[in-house]
């Protein structure tokens, strides 16, 4: 999921011009789980804007809970058909969702003016209803086969691939003593699995071209093509 946190309200309203009519759009998937853009927060944002003298043209959170704002065809239908009059009356859209959601609203409204209402902070695991933790950096070149599924690109502050720096203290990272050392987590896990041998092999430098931006993915029921500066890679899911 894409973890998001609302921007401070003063920062949001700073960018709204006098007389500008704003339509608020939330997301019923990730932002709902983050309490940053579900139905309750979206309605609340409309009220918070009105309380500060901003005219709200309308608000919506497309689809049932679990539906993502970034599903373009659905969001387009909800905005342009279900909320046609309010959207027509709006000068801009305030999006309570991730950066992908912001762009989805641009596409759905054929280039409407947008304001991001959230900071997109990371892609994470919903560990509990109140806790989201980052385990993947979305680098495009997954190397966790040799680390028991724990990603050193994400769990190590220096993104070291061949083992820890010498700075851990009582199992904690020298950069953030609140956090465990990612490499000690990897070591303890592999020890428990009886697979410390996996640590012996040299891990070559990352292919950063796969981490280039922007990237795209063409998908079908039988194969997918990943496009980055490193080129196109097509993989079949059939054999």
């Amino acid at each position: 999921m894409h973890a998001t946190i609302q921007k401070p309200i003063d920062e949001i309203i700073k960018h709204i011009q006098p007389g500008e009519k704003v339509f608020v759009v939330g997301c019923n998937n990730c932002a709902w789980k983050c309490y940053s853009g579900g139905e309750a927060e979206t309605e609340m944002m409309a009220k918070r804007l009105e309380k500060r003298g901003i005219e709200v043209a309308g608000y919506t959170v497309p689809g049932p809970q679990g539906m993502s704002l970034c599903k373009l065809s659905h969001t387009r239908k909800v905005l342009l058909e279900d909320h046609a009059d309010e959207v027509k009356n709006a000068d801009s859209f305030l999006i309570l969702g991730c950066g992908q959601g912001v762009h989805t609203v641009i596409d759905a409204t054929d280039g409407g003016m947008v304001h991001p209402g959230c900071d997109t902070v990371f892609g994470g695991e919903t560990v509990s209803d109140t806790h989201i933790e980052e385990y993947c950096s979305l680098c495009g070149d997954c190397i966790i086969e040799n680390t028991g599924g724990l990603c050193p690109m994400t769990l190590c502050a220096k993104q070291l691939l061949n083992g820890p720096c010498g700075g851990a203290e009582d199992g904690h990272c020298e950069v953030d003593p609140e956090r465990p050392c990612g490499w000690i987590l990897i070591y303890e896990r592999l020890k428990k699995l009886g697979r410390l041998d996996l640590l012996d092999s040299y891990q070559p430098p990352k292919k950063n071209s796969k981490w280039s931006r922007p990237r795209s993915l063409e998908v079908s029921p039988t194969e997918a093509t990943f496009c980055s500066i490193s080129g196109k890679v097509t993989i079949s899911n059939q054999d």
């Binding site: 061949n162 083992g163 010498g166 700075g167 012996d200």
Partner: peptide
């Protein structure tokens, strides 16, 4: 290399590399 590291074997694994 850091001889104070705990776990030491992990530090030595990297030293060997």
């Amino acid at each position: 290399v850091n001889p104070n590291s705990d776990p030491l074997d992990l530090q030595i694994m990297k030293m060997k590399k």
